[in-house]
Design a binder for these strands. Structure first.
Lengths: 226, 226
DNA sequence: AATTTCATGTAATTCGTTACATGATTCC
DNA sequence: GGAATCATGTAACGAATTACATGAAATT
């Protein structure tokens, strides 16, 4: 019952799987740690957590998240609430992870799925990546068709906007190609037609993603918007 | 009264400024012609049109959009409704076009603004482009900071997702740089500190956007989703 | 004649935000 | 002791979707 959002639910479950957290911290992770995620507000997050608890996927635990356990024995007036994944919650997340349906390749949903690829089985990863790619290729077809149809009638700016949009999509397709290729490369070792693809959670072995020069520079500034 | 959405309202006004249309056609233009626009549904579009009519910015006219004017004299049972911009509507759109506030540089809003740059004054264009760029640069700062802070603790996939996300943003910044530069190049001719930048609607002269090789191939297929 | 595409709408529902209200903890 | 940040929530609202309902025009 109560079909909560999908993407938020999924991300919360995924983050809590790694370690228990309270709502505030969860929100920060949602905004920053994961790639694309837009900032969910508390007005969205807390009610969602309630629902997940009601479904038996999470349990609320009083404080003691980091080190404020010292004051915990004093009268329990409004302690922090730490959320922890239950066994049922873990199983539910596992099920969500294994679904590779058409929902999984829409923009935001895809990003969420990708963010938890580390805990996803290889064949599911493949289906999601390939699904996403063909979704984008469809989109490209439409863009090209529409561009060919309207061309001439559009001013330079509209044209430039479309060109840039198409280029972005083409770029993502190339990215997916690299990823798919490197997934395939990671597979090999005498694969029979039906090797059941063992999950390789936290086993250090990922087959190696494509290399890119990462240009990051340290700069601690505030991280909360507004 | 009734503060309808902003982006849809803006786009509808902008499209109708070019020529009167009925709702169905309007929706197609919204999905295809403009670059990024997601598909608004009829459930969104029609009520919005009603509001715009109520505000006096549009008027509804019976049929005769293309060539079905022949049957128009017969009893007027449920004719197509063609929407036309009123003078008040034109003025309102003009006002919206001149606003270059912080709303204008959010993702979708920016795309909508850019799509109508052909009817926007040059100094407004500049402010919007520069606003957008600094918005993205802020975002980059946060991403870099968060990446530097978390690094190591993240698995390869999460890292790769962030890397790709950042690269996309960097790429858009470069695009904006090109656009800004070419706007500046188009300005020149002895510009005093305060030249009032004439609007150059449909006057063929745009100063020239940066050149790119457009790889488009014709392919008429269906354009309606689902 | 039947199907598809064009065309217009409404009601219920979903997803999420803003603004509000409250309180605890940490830093200065 | 006052400000900033951490922390948890709720109520009202907003934007847009889905599913539904209807009907006209064009195509086969």
């Amino acid at each position: 019952m109560s079909r909560r959002s999908g993407i938020l639910e999924f991300a919360v479950l995924g983050l809590l799987r790694e370690s228990p957290m309270h709502g505030y911290e969860l929100r920060k992770r949602l905004n920053t740690s994961l790639g694309i995620f837009r900032a969910f507000s508390y007005g969205t997050l807390y009610p969602c957590l309630k629902t997940l608890v009601a479904n038996g996927w999470l349990i609320e635990e009083p404080g003691s998240a980091s080190e404020e356990a010292l004051a915990s024995s004093l009268a329990g007036r409004r302690a922090k609430i730490v959320y922890r994944l239950t066994t049922a919650g873990k199983e539910h997340f596992e099920v969500l992870l294994s679904h590779a349906g058409p929902d999984a390749w829409e923009d935001e949903h895809f990003a969420a799925r990708f963010a938890f690829f580390g805990q996803t089985e290889r064949d599911v990863r493949m289906r999601v990546l390939e699904g996403r790619r063909s979704r984008l290729e469809e989109r490209l077809e439409k863009m090209r068709a529409s561009l060919a149809r309207t061309r001439e009638r559009l001013d330079d700016y509209t044209l430039e906007l479309q060109r840039h949009g198409m280029e972005s999509v083409e770029r993502e397709v190339r990215w997916l190609n690299e990823l798919i290729e490197s997934e395939r490369a990671g597979r090999d070792q005498r694969s029979g037609p039906d090797t059941p693809a063992p999950l390789d959670h936290d086993s250090g072995e990922t087959g190696g993603l494509p290399r890119h020069g990462g240009s990051t520079r340290p700069d601690p500034s505030d991280d909360t918007a507004k």
